[in-house]
Amino acid sequence: MPISALNATQALIRRKLNAGPRRRRKAELLLTRREVTWRERLVILVPYLWMILFFLMPFLIIFKISLSVTEIAIPPYSPIVTFEDGAMQIILHLENYTFIFTDEDGTYMKSYLKSLEVASFSTLLCLFIGYPIAWALSKCRPATRNIMFMLLIMPSWTSFVVRIYAWMALLKKDGLINDVLMALGIIDSPIHMLQTDFAVYVGIVYCYLPYMVLPLFTALLKVDYTLIEAAYDLGARPVKTFFSVLVPQTRSGIIAGSMLVFIPALGEYVIPELLGGKGSILIGRILWQEFFNNRDWPLASAVAIVMLTILAIPIVIFFKSQRKKAEAA
């Protein structure tokens, strides 16, 4: 609503205020509720549009595809809605989903579990490594802090894939790490590191650590350190103090950081593909294979939808807990 119109309405309401008592009460209500201007509406609209265009629409398309079956056609799946002799038919195939859950080899379930395992373990690793880093960042002087931040962020200035290739060079049999260890006489023969789960963890932790550190750092900055002194004063040892005072206070940072690592790690494709072994098949690779190698778009879509559901659970839990905290405060 343009400003002049708004002013006019408010003037009208004011005039009504001078009217009878019943009318006045209504008008008062109108005045207290603040008008949302069209500019403000526009600002809210942008992220909504973004979400609709780039999340909701693709999601619905994928969901639609997951309810069909493959066909040699363009696009390579059966239509859901067909018209024949004036009759509209809607056919929803659920076999992709049943196949995922009842596949005899259990390939899909196994790779989901494996992906969950890798993602959870990587998240924990990031948490254990990231917490001390975030702590140090929150404790040091601003000048040092800037340098430390640069060191933390700078690797992401180079391409992600390039950095993973660099890790391949470091981890391979005749790579830098093995060479140094051999030269120092610590090992006799090179350790097999590349194409193991170890390499996958190295890659994921290396890439996602900053996403863990940053929310933890912001949470640690807000920590009330007299609470830690109070815990010490009451006889709590450092470890006990950490878990009973610091962890609850940085809870939101821990959750946010964990989600920022867990969610992309679950569907990670590049890192396990380049660093991981052929034995451990993660869900990212299954998706790739079904989509590009087998050209089974419906099954690939179903795999993606199931993965999204798995991801939705921790997110919902997170927002529930956030809301509970907001209500508490």
Partner: peptide, 14 residues
């Protein structure tokens, strides 16, 4: 065996 009452009370909020 000394305890302190803090100026801000420092009660554990959780």
């Amino acid at each position: 065996t000394i305890n302190m009452m803090f100026q801000s009370y420092a009660l554990f909020p959780n």
